[in-house]
Design a protein around this nucleic acid. Sequence first.
DNA 1: TACCAGGTCCTCG
DNA 2: CGAGGACATGGT
Length: 250
Amino acid sequence: MNKLRSPLKVYEKLYSSFGPQGWWPITKKGKKLPGYYPLSYSRKKYSEKLEICLGAILTQNTSWKNAERALFNLTANKLIDVKKINVISKNRLAAFIRPSGYYNQKAERIKNFAKYILCNYGASISLFFKNSTKKLRNELLSLSGIGPETADSILLYAASRPVFVVDAYTIRAGARMGWFGAGKNFLIPLCGKKDKDYKNIQEFFHNALPVSFKIYNEFHALIVELGKNYCRKKPACEKCPLKSECRKRI
DNA sequence: TACCAGGTCCTCG
DNA sequence: CGAGGACATGGT
């Protein structure tokens, strides 16, 4: 068996293979698909921060392409705005975000979020983001419809905090790398309980990597790129850039 | 056709 | 608690 590669080595390999991803993607006002990737690692605009929050909810268990369609509808109708989201009816909002799937649930979740920001921070995302990372995370998790991945995506990509995002791609690729998974043979054994596993996996990356907004930002984006193109459910290992470092290569 | 996609919440037992 | 199900569109 080949030896396990450190997350940092894997990050460097992915980065040199795919290049910088420049997440989070932002819609281009007045333009059609696709959005663009700012590649700036700094987001100051209110509308962009809010758009990232909404995108994080819209992409839950949904392809980014479909989430993006919903986001374009919101942009086109000037709904990337906490106050307007509060005013529009849930059903009308749901119609706009229809392409993202689960549109009734997501409309509710988006309104939940907007209501919280309006009532507690005077509709100012920037004020909300002045909180400590811990407080911010707790408040996000307290909202119905925002779980650990959505909260951490918002923390990392909208609030620029060094928080590692764990998603389905991360779990799949990490398991194949031999980093974590059910049973023996893994550095970090997983128990199957989602919250606990999420925490353990996130801790694994936090321990294995420097505390770096840029690395967490790029690494997660690179893992998604890997998961979409190579480390799929049915993996395409032949051309995978991690072929030589992966334990589970076929 | 069936399965998949950058999860989360609710309901049972 | 913890497993199982619901939520829903668009692509392959």
